[in-house]
Amino acid sequence: MHPQISYPSGTVRALLETDLVTRPTRDALSARLEPPDSGGPRFFMGPALTTLRAACARLIPQPHRTEPIDLARCIDERLATGAGNGWRYDSMPADGDACLAGLAGLDQTSQARYGTPFHELDGARQDDVLRAVQRGAAQGEVWTRMPATRFFEELLAECVEFYYSHPLAQEEIGYVGMADAPGWRAIGLNRLEPREPRAEPDTGG
């Protein structure tokens, strides 16, 4: 078993205050640390948002955080602004339609298996529903017109992307690639720049 390691907290936040980070990068990461008030959800409403929050909490659990990174908010903001990566699977509808349908599908599968909406299930049963969707073995009318496996793949990828693009998550893995203004000289195996954090044994404290 590999030993658990951790990195000092505050490393990314400290670097953002230096000239090691370019202004556009600093502005982007600072906005993720303290997102502007958008006045609440802009794309999802009601049950869809509740289901999305529950799914995000199972896909990227954050029990160590008193204030978890709000992945549902990130997805809501992306869809509200129409941002995207410029492509989609031909078996999937447009991003917003796919997400709304997939979240409805999670509730359909949950109702078929347990007789209750997805967000009301305990964690183990939510995981069971998500695994069924991942395997393409989920019940529900939605999955007859949209592949469950693709929806799961897209939702998981988006959660991971938003999580690890957040400065607090980057601190967890010792990532400081955003501090690239002066370039990189220590490129050999196990060599670190002075600005790169050193791993520490995780004492579990």
Results as ranks from 00 to 15, higher is better:
Val21Gln: 00
Ala169Pro: 13
Thr18Met: 09
Gly40Leu: 03
Arg65Asp: 11
Thr144Lys: 15
Arg150Gln: 10
Ala124Leu: 10
Arg88Phe: 01
Trp143Phe: 13
His119Cys: 07
Phe118Val: 01
Gly96His: 03
Asp37Val: 03
Arg150Gly: 00
Glu171Leu: 12
Glu154Gln: 15
Ala55Trp: 06
Arg135Ala: 15
Gly105Arg: 04
Gln170Phe: 10
Gly46Gln: 12
Ser91Thr: 12
Gly84Ile: 05
Glu17Asp: 14
Pro194Cys: 08
Phe152Met: 13
Ile69Asn: 06
Gly115Val: 02
Val21Ser: 05
Ser91Asp: 09
Cys99Asp: 09
Ile69Ala: 06
Gly84Gln: 02
Pro8Lys: 09
Arg150His: 14
Thr25His: 05
His166Val: 08
Glu67Cys: 03
Thr18Arg: 07
Asp19Phe: 04
Glu77Thr: 10
Gly177Ile: 15
Pro147Leu: 09
Met92Leu: 13
Leu52Tyr: 11
Pro35Asn: 04
Gln62Leu: 04
Gln139His: 11
Phe151Val: 00
Arg42Gln: 15
Glu161Ala: 15
Asp202Ile: 04
Glu141Pro: 00
Ser38Asp: 14
Met45Tyr: 13
Ala101Gly: 13
Val21Arg: 02
Ile60Ser: 00
Val21Ile: 10
Pro201Lys: 03
Gln139Phe: 09
Ala57Met: 05
Val160Tyr: 11
Asp95Arg: 09
Val133Pro: 04
Leu15His: 10
Thr25Tyr: 01
Arg145Tyr: 11
Gly123Pro: 02
Ser6Val: 12
Thr109Gly: 07
Leu33Tyr: 08
Glu153Arg: 08
Gln170Met: 15
Gly82Trp: 01
Leu49Gly: 07
Ala186Tyr: 07
Gly204Thr: 14
Glu153Thr: 02
Cys159Ile: 07
Ala55Phe: 05
Val176Asn: 05
Thr11Ala: 10
Arg53Trp: 03
Ala148Glu: 03
Gly82Asn: 01
Gln108Lys: 03
Leu49Tyr: 13
Trp143Val: 03
Gly10Val: 10
Leu29Gln: 00
Cys99Asn: 08
Asp122Gln: 04
Pro201Met: 02
Gly115Asp: 00
Ala31Glu: 11
Glu120Lys: 13
Leu130Gln: 00
Trp143Gln: 02
Met146Thr: 04
Gly177Lys: 06
Gly10Asp: 05
Ala94Thr: 08
Glu77Pro: 01
Phe152His: 12
Ala169Phe: 09
Thr51Val: 06
Pro47Val: 10
Arg131Val: 07
His2Ile: 12
Ile187Cys: 14
Pro117Arg: 13
Thr203Tyr: 03
Leu29Ser: 02
Arg73Glu: 10
Arg23Ile: 11
Thr22Asp: 14
Ala181Ile: 00
Ser30Gln: 09
Val176Glu: 06
Phe151Glu: 05
Leu100Pro: 01
Ile187Arg: 14
Glu200Asp: 01
Ser165Ala: 15
Gly174Thr: 05
Gly177Thr: 10
Glu34Ser: 13
Ala80Ser: 12
Asp122Trp: 07
Leu130Met: 08
Phe43Gln: 05
Glu153Pro: 00
Pro36Ile: 06
Arg198Ser: 08
Thr109Lys: 00
Ala104Phe: 05
Glu141Gln: 14
Arg78Lys: 12
Thr22Phe: 09
Met92Asp: 10
His2Asp: 13
Gly105Tyr: 06
Asp70Glu: 04
